[in-house]
């Protein structure tokens, strides 16, 4: 993996200069605690460890459970702070303890998509927020920035994702896609071309798709 620290000077405030940086000063505290001060101490230590393990096993007969990953914890914070727009509802299909997989439904209250209901699945990886959420649209939609497989072209989901962004930001971004569909970043280029050349036809096509019907050769299921 990329060794980063010398790449970005602005990060230098996060680490301290040391007179002889090759050798540990921070470990000295540990050494004085007797962990690594001598081989004999190490031997003692290993014996204690074995003892403790036996004690632990006898005490409750089970191994300690794994901690939550940092990503899961950050997600817990994001979800507990959610402030959903009134167009949006959220559901946790796997119950209250699986926040890593959830669905949101957007019911736009203005624009071309007024009255439709569009469901998105969110998959959050353990390395969230280092990695953005994976978002797919479950509802087949006639939209320039969402393809027929449900891939979504939203900058903050890919090239512009930053760890300071959160689930709320993404939900607002998705809402924006319905009020301001954008013909410049097409994923469904036929829909984008129609939006660009003939907005009235685009509107008709969106209505037809949402009511359940064909636009060109593609069948859309009703989502109103």
């Amino acid at each position: 993996m990329e060794p980063g620290p010398n790449k970005n000077g602005s990060r230098s405030s996060s680490y301290k200069k040391n007179k002889s940086p090759l050798y540990s000063s921070s470990l000295d505290g540990l050494i004085s605690h007797g962990l690594l001060n001598s081989w004999r101490a190490m031997i003692r230590l290993f014996k204690i460890k074995d003892q403790r393990k036996e004690e632990a096993a006898n005490a409750n007969g089970r191994a300690p459970a794994k901690k939550q990953s940092a990503g899961e914890l950050r997600l817990h914070k994001d979800i507990s702070e959610l402030n959903l727009p009134k167009t949006t509802t959220i559901a946790f299909p796997n119950g209250k303890d699986d926040l890593m997989n959830f669905e949101i439904s957007i019911r736009p209250d203005e624009g071309y998509y007024l009255g439709g209901t569009f469901t998105f699945t969110f998959q959050i990886s353990a390395s969230y927020p280092h990695e953005p959420p994976k978002v797919k649209c479950k509802t087949k939609v006639y939209h320039p920035n969402i393809d027929l497989e449900g891939n979504v072209c939203l900058n903050i989901l890919r090239e512009d994702w930053k760890p300071v962004l959160n689930i709320n930001t993404v939900i607002y971004g998705l809402n924006l896609l319905f009020t301001q569909p954008n013909d410049e970043d097409p994923l469904n280029h036929e829909a984008a071309a129609v939006l660009h050349d003939n907005p009235r036809l685009f509107e008709t096509n969106v209505r037809r798709a949402m009511a359940g019907g064909y636009v060109g050769n593609t069948y859309f299921t009703r989502c109103i």
Partner: peptide, 30 residues
Amino acid sequence: VIVPGTTPCFECNIWLFPPQVKFPLCTLAE
């Protein structure tokens, strides 16, 4: 060297790892 509780753990400075380059989906598609 990571000595938990004494030196930074992997998560303490995860920002050392630059995020993976992600291309816009529309660029890939179009």
